[in-house]
């Protein structure tokens, strides 16, 4: 595999493709990841977007994209991607478009969709070895409808459906493990606050054929209850505390691309977010905090 062109932030484009003027919340971590990824994919890209926050990007007659965008129901963006890929292949075969006019097909879906409703369609697309990109922006809840719990919601987080004193009783599902069990061409976890890591992964995936699967943790000021100016800081803390491991899957192997050198306590990440405020006040919930920390420690003990 050739060496990366992204050696420092200077190598990232400052001429961004995704236009301003959308209805997305100020400081949205998901939008940040989409913007950075789009710059690397280039403008010959078509987005297939399942219902969620990001479908507010394109509200007729306004679009921030340079090219096409298709809206699908929550369960079926990968099926939409298959249709577009097939149509492009037909056009290529008939010579009606030239190879340089070909488009990259990118599924853009939230976690409610990716971790739940769209799992079956995603699994089928990987079974068929569909040549596409998949970006799940994971804001850990049903953001667009008021932040209800999803299978990606972390343990103890308060959401619109788990507003009681204990927050969400379940545990975040390991979608990366489910995806990689299908042996796709490529899979990675990313985050907008680590743009170089993100850029290198997208660049690598672009050289491969087949399913290229990404999950971006998407700090969400609205649903996680923090000041929008903290989006990047919280993203960095997610990586430094080890709660969001940055990794990639290639040729059957998983590699951690940015393992925290000295992991800082997960509390530092949790206490910045209103959705975890009940773990700190009126009194400290030591038991829950220890459990959350223990699960992260366990992950890293197994990972290295």
């Amino acid at each position: 595999m050739k060496e990366t062109t992204f050696k420092s932030l200077k190598n990232l484009s400052t001429d961004h493709l995704l236009a301003s003027g959308t209805a997305i919340c100020a400081g949205c971590g998901g939008l940040e990841a989409v913007k950075i990824m789009y710059d690397i994919l280039g403008k010959n890209t078509v987005f297939v977007n399942s219902a969620g926050c990001m479908t507010l990007l394109s509200v007729y007659p306004f679009t921030p994209f340079q090219g096409s965008w298709l809206y699908t129901a929550m369960a079926c963006a990968p099926a939409g991607a298959q249709g577009i890929r097939d149509a492009l292949d037909v056009l290529l075969n008939k010579g009606r478009i030239q190879p340089e006019e070909d488009l990259k097909v990118v599924v853009l879906s939230g976690d409610g969709s990716s971790y739940g409703m769209a799992l079956s369609a995603t699994s089928a697309a990987m079974d068929r070895n569909l040549d596409f990109f998949y970006l799940c922006y994971d804001n850990e809840g049903y953001g667009n409808t008021g932040h209800q719990s999803s299978p990606a919601t972390p343990h103890a987080a308060r959401t619109a459906t788990n507003s009681g004193p204990f927050g969400y009783p379940g545990y975040k599902k390991d979608l990366f493990a489910i995806w990689t069990a299908h042996k796709p061409a490529y899979a990675a976890t990313i985050i907008g606050s680590e743009p170089l890591d993100l850029a290198r992964k997208v660049e690598k995936a672009m050289s491969l054929k087949g399913p290229k699967m990404f999950i971006a943790l998407a700090p969400c000021p609205t649903g996680w209850h923090f000041d929008p100016r903290e989006t990047v800081e919280i993203g960095k803390l997610a990586v430094k505390t080890g709660i969001w491991p940055l990794k990639e899957y290639l040729d059957g192997k998983v590699i951690h691309t940015k393992p925290p050198r000295r992991r800082i306590p997960v509390e530092e990440y949790l206490k910045k977010q209103g959705r975890f405020a009940h773990l700190f006040s009126p009194q400290r919930d030591t038991k829950q905090l220890e459990e959350i920390q223990a699960r992260i420690d366990e992950y890293w003990a197994e990972a290295i």
Binding site: A19, T63, Q66
Partner: peptide
């Protein structure tokens, strides 16, 4: 929509 980046109008 047959034009790019029309969201700039908002």
């Amino acid at each position: 929509i047959h034009a790019a980046a029309t969201s700039l109008k908002n």
